[in-house]
Computed example of a mutant assay.
Amino acid sequence: NPLFVEGQPSDYTNMAMEFCNNFEQERQRTESFVQLIKDLDLLDTRDAVFTPRNPDGTPGEPQKLAEYYAVSEDKLRALPAEKLAELRDNGALGQIYAHLVSLLGWDRLIALAFLRQAQPTTVN
């Protein structure tokens, strides 16, 4: 794909520049959101843990896979009503709830990753 056509940016170049601009806007928005929840002291450190099954089906030794930050539901509930209303009105509360819902998938995601890793790979 040419970058320029007749001395002007091509459609391809314009789309690439638009993508970069959109990406930067979303990065800034994410940075602002993270700063907001940090300023409100809503984050806690959590561990991603996987408990494999032994050959006999009993739970194996839990394995810590990662440490990450997540919004604390207790800290969120402890916010004053005015602050919750402000978060609702500026759209941050919806993002916080989306984050909390996404955390429910950790266990499933880890289990799927281990299952895929355990499957033999075939070469054609």
Rank of each mutant, 00 (worst) to 15 (best):
D41W: 03
N22P: 00
D44N: 13
R46C: 12
I37E: 01
L42M: 02
N21E: 15
C20T: 07
R27S: 09
F33W: 00
P59D: 05
P55W: 02
E26H: 10
D56S: 04
D41G: 04
R53P: 03
G57V: 10
L43R: 03
R46Q: 06
V49S: 06
L43S: 02
D44M: 09
L43Q: 01
R29G: 04
T51I: 13
L40T: 02
I37D: 03
L36K: 15
V34R: 01
R46V: 07
G60S: 13
E24I: 13
T51L: 04
F50V: 05
F23R: 14
P55I: 03
V49F: 10
N22W: 05
R53K: 15
S32L: 12
K38C: 03
V49K: 10
Q35E: 10
V49Y: 08
N22C: 05
D56P: 03
Q25Y: 08
I37Q: 01
R53G: 01
G60P: 08
E24C: 09
S32H: 12
N54H: 10
D39K: 10
R27G: 01
S32Y: 10
R29V: 05
C20L: 15
Q25V: 09
D41K: 14
D41P: 00
T45A: 07
R53C: 06
G57A: 12
F23H: 14
E31L: 05
E24F: 13
E31I: 04
R46F: 13
